[in-house]
Write a protein that binds this DNA or RNA. Structure first.
Lengths: 340, 340
DNA sequence: TTGAAAGCGCTAACAG
DNA sequence: CTGTTAGCGCTTTCAA
């Protein structure tokens, strides 16, 4: 089955390749007679012609491809994402992109190859980067002069668009809620707190709330690991080992909160009576654990939609750098208990 | 910043473009003198040259792109996948592909455009399809003569490679375990049971186990919906509405099992004393729910790895159709209680 | 309103 | 061992 090209269509329709190209791209009606246009369309249908986007890209310098970079949750691990958060985000990105005629080029973070290489390699029209990475790799990207959207990161950059939430506020909200319920000894459980990442901001929010209440931040209440179930499950033991006196914890991700709950239970604690927890994200898992997890809700799907939209907007008509902050809210469930 | 092409490199190195191309593709040493090769590499580095894969594909008819199609979990919903299962799978596919120099072209199932269109559009070298789809769309794919790997589907096809698990056995294992623990009235909770899908096989396994034990399969014990938390949460009410007498359920996906547990609890049931549940997949969520979910474990990550590997193998050297079945096992946790 | 022709950046015979 | 050259399939001036 030989590949059918624009040439074949042209021959079939008795026109030139130019005409075919016109019919296919410029919404026909403008420059081509309805009759010719129809003939071309018929030929296309008859031959079951499908344009070769590679060739198109080569000459038009437009790929209709959006690059998406998703972080490695656990360094060195083969998984880009074990956290369901990324699945949801990606899902919404894919959907939005597809609706607008774009395909997604998915990639984890390269060690050897820089993103800018991939971008140049494939000539993606825009790129969405989730999470924070070494700043220098972003520098290269800047040279590319294609729209870049940074999701969930706080790197300062004069050019790249960003989309995220107010993580600091979220951390503050979560912790404040715990304080309001009478808790004084509150643990902070999170993944690695990297320089410009969301975890760091959530941590700042945690401290904000503590400070407001005049509660000192104590290092022994801080638990840093990886954003995954296994780490969270191990935290309660570590708490005991430290001889901790915490009555509550702010888990900077739902998966951590869920793991905490489970780990605590395993140690014989009664929840929420003995220990209160607030999570972050509002994933399905928050509703599944028992007690269900009070958490900071964010609209993941909207995040994905906006990320794509920013790329699209930037693509037609330059636009000044945008910083989009999506709203969050505290969702009350059953994992927090008032202390008397 | 003008694009630097192979020509520029050639000029810089004082050689022809052919030579550059040779150095870049055919592991240099063979046909090119070390010295020339070195000069070219220097020029590449100096100019910071990155090959344009589009152009390369156009002439070599090789894109180093693998298409991945992930199903819509809930029909009509914008999400490809809310089930963390897909995130994990995708993760492993991406990682494996990248290690072998392939990039991923991600796509949800199109309604308008067929997969074969995308495949032809972009000229992907191979395609991985997860889940089952209308058979006719696969027919078109066959014409493409590129390797296709079907993951988790039971469509009969003489050409496409497949990779999956023995879902029927899984269903049987799960249900049999319940029976062994003395249960006689066992519900089956799953998403839509489509013709050649995994849910159907799991359902068959459920029936197998029941038949072996001489227990009649009753329609009133069957709960079909979507593979999502919300449906699962609603099942317990439906059970009461039906005036059901079930003491156990086989949930054909962990997310359903988790939802069931939660929903049952909400109705005041004590678990596992009042009700036993077995899930399927062994996702994180199975360890998080309370009681933690006894489930059928499958190696999702291996599934992804093998899928890519099959494509790669097929790509160099034709190979007869492969059908890979990965092992599964029953993981005992706390959601099943012996009935006396 | 349509066609001829020159590339887009790279590969791969075929020569030399 | 290296260079010439003809495409890959499509877009897009520029003419007709």
């Amino acid at each position: 089955m030989k590949r059918v090209g624009i040439k074949d269509v042209a021959r079939e329709a008795g026109v030139s390749t130019t005409t075919v190209s016109y019919v296919l791209n410029h919404k026909s009606s403008e420059t081509i007679s309805a009759e010719t246009s129809q003939r071309v369309m018929n030929a296309v249908a008859k031959l079951n012609y499908v344009p070769n986007l590679n060739a198109r890209s080569l000459s038009s310098r437009k790929t209709n491809l959006i690059g998406v970079v998703i972080p490695q949750t656990e360094p060195g691990k083969e998984f880009m994402f074990s956290n369901p958060f990324y699945g949801e985000l990606l899902s919404s990105v894919e959907y939005t992109a597809r609706k607008h005629g774009y395909h997604l080029l998915l990639s984890g973070p390269q060690s050897d190859q820089s993103y800018s290489s991939i971008a140049r390699n494939r000539g993606v029209d825009g790129i969405i980067i989730v999470g924070s990475y070494p700043t220098h790799s972003l520098g290269e990207l800047r040279q590319l002069s294609i729209p870049v959207v940074l999701v969930d990161t706080y790197v300062k950059d004069p050019v790249f668009h960003t989309i995220g939430i107010d993580d600091r506020l979220g951390g503050q909200l979560a912790t404040h809620h715990l304080i309001e319920q009478g808790h004084r000894h509150i643990a902070f459980v999170s993944g690695a707190v990297s320089e410009q990442g969301v975890m760091q901001k959530r941590f700042l929010g945690y401290m904000d709330a503590l400070n407001e209440a005049g509660i000192p931040v104590k290092e022994q209440h801080l638990y840093f690991g990886t954003v995954g179930l296994d780490f969270a499950l191990s935290v309660p033991q570590e708490m005991t080992r430290r001889g901790s006196v915490e009555t509550a914890a702010f888990a900077a991700a739902d998966i951590l909160g869920a793991g905490l709950i489970k780990g605590l239970r395993k140690l014989g604690k009664r929840l929420p009576d003995d220990f209160s927890i607030v999570g972050f994200d509002d994933l399905d898992i928050a509703r599944v654990c028992d007690p269900s997890l009070t958490t900071i809700r964010q609209d993941i799907s909207a995040k994905g939609r906006h990320a794509v939209q920013l790329i699209l907007d930037a693509l037609d008509g330059t636009m000044e750098k945008q910083e989009r902050i999506l709203p969050i809210s505290l969702v009350l469930r059953d994992s927090v208990q008032k202390v008397i």
